[in-house]
Design a protein around this nucleic acid. Structure first.
Lengths: 218, 218
DNA sequence: TGTACATCAGTGAACGCGCGTTCACTGATGTAC
DNA sequence: TGTACATCAGTGAACGCGCGTTCACTGATGTAC
């Protein structure tokens, strides 16, 4: 009855019984996201992640030197995914600067909504030790620079209000970050009432950003 | 040599040696704010607060049933202070709706900057157990309602762009909350460069909010 | 193809830590007489 | 005014918990012959 080719054994034992996991590193990163989704970023402990991955609490140390390294790996994966989806959305948008810029903003917000766990780990602030934090400065600064470049281009074309583009970018970043934080903390639901859907509200916030820029579609 | 009137003894022993503290409850709330200022909201533990207040770790339980109750007391104190300063600023502003509204927004941001510890405890989200959270819904909802009423009044007078005032209020709340979060997490400093001062940036953000509203001073 | 062995991934016991909370206590205070 | 006593605020030991991290181990895998 029992098939003798090794694939069978592999399939049976893959999920739980294999001593060697196969790709525990990836499984741990997935587990970390699951933990954040279910109990929030504060619940992100090595032991809980190991538990979710169905593995002893010491196993993660074969793949990450310490907790900071685990979290930084999630952050890095998150930034890659974000960059990737943002580029895809920009590629799909009409090829004028204002639309490209709009596509970025929309993509950013959508990323935060579709991957709230990533977003929270990436921007939570108090997850990492202070040494762990240093490695992130570069990345977030880059994101702002790109946004500033976008705004400058729109200004040159006269489709965005004049003004210091760095300050404009910061105001936009504040709006998006604040909105996403409120949503992720579940505070939108009982602040507003029933009649508002999330897409509703998201679009209104995006529109308000462009109104703030004095954006005039070409 | 030694003065015999009791005041002397009281003064010597007041700071450290008195068995009965006098007003430990208030001292604990102060200590809680100091902790948040120095190590962030995550460091808010009963033991640490007691340590700061120079008192055994069991002493706080004479004044607060549990950790939630301590935190809620800080939150309540914070809301009182915020409401008070906002009303004062509104009273000092010119008596037209747009200026009143501007005064509110400025007061809100200033409160957050001048009392970052209060702000963080009030809006951090993951400090309280879920039961503790329920007590706060009422308060934050009230704040939004008042803002909506302000916007509606400005719209009636034609000094603010037409549109759903609830959505406008939410966009503003997002901007302010996001900005304050970035500042409190120390992320503004290395996002921007040297040339920007905090007041600089704060004012720019406030201006961008009014531009978003299409505000036209009367 | 089969066997010895090095390598490496995962295990489980153990460490020390800080936490929230409880409890029997003790010292100070105020009050009734 | 002085003394007994109830009250109440603060103490310190103790509990059980989850955490990060280490360590000697064991089981599986791949490789050299």
């Amino acid at each position: 009855m029992e098939p003798s080719h090794s694939l069978w054994k592999w399939r049976v034992t893959a999920a739980k019984e294999k001593y060697h996991h196969g790709d525990l590193r990836a499984a741990l990163l997935d587990a970390a996201l699951a933990v954040v989704n279910e109990v929030g970023p504060q619940g992100l402990s090595m032991r809980e992640v190991a538990r979710r991955a169905g593995v002893s609490h010491a196993a993660p140390y074969r793949h990450f030197a310490d907790r900071d390294e685990l979290i930084l790996a999630v952050v890095e994966q998150g930034f890659n995914l974000m960059q990737q989806t943002m580029q895809a959305q920009k590629a799909a948008a009409p090829d004028d600067p204002l639309n490209q810029f709009a596509a970025s903003g929309l993509a950013y917000v959508n990323f935060a909504f579709e991957h709230p766990a990533y977003y929270q780990v990436m921007f939570s602030g108090d997850l990492l030790s202070s040494t762990g934090h240093l490695s992130l400065r570069h990345t977030s600064r880059e994101a702002l620079q790109e946004m500033v470049a976008n705004i400058e281009q729109c200004q040159r074309l006269g489709v965005v209000r004049a003004g210091d583009p760095v300050l404009q970018a910061l105001a936009i970043l504040s709006t998006i970050h604040g909105f996403v934080s409120l949503v992720n903390d579940n505070r939108i639901g009982h602040l507003l009432g029933n009649p508002y859907s999330l897409e509703n509200v998201r679009d209104a916030v995006l529109v308000s950003i462009f109104e703030g820029l004095g954006a005039t579609p070409a």
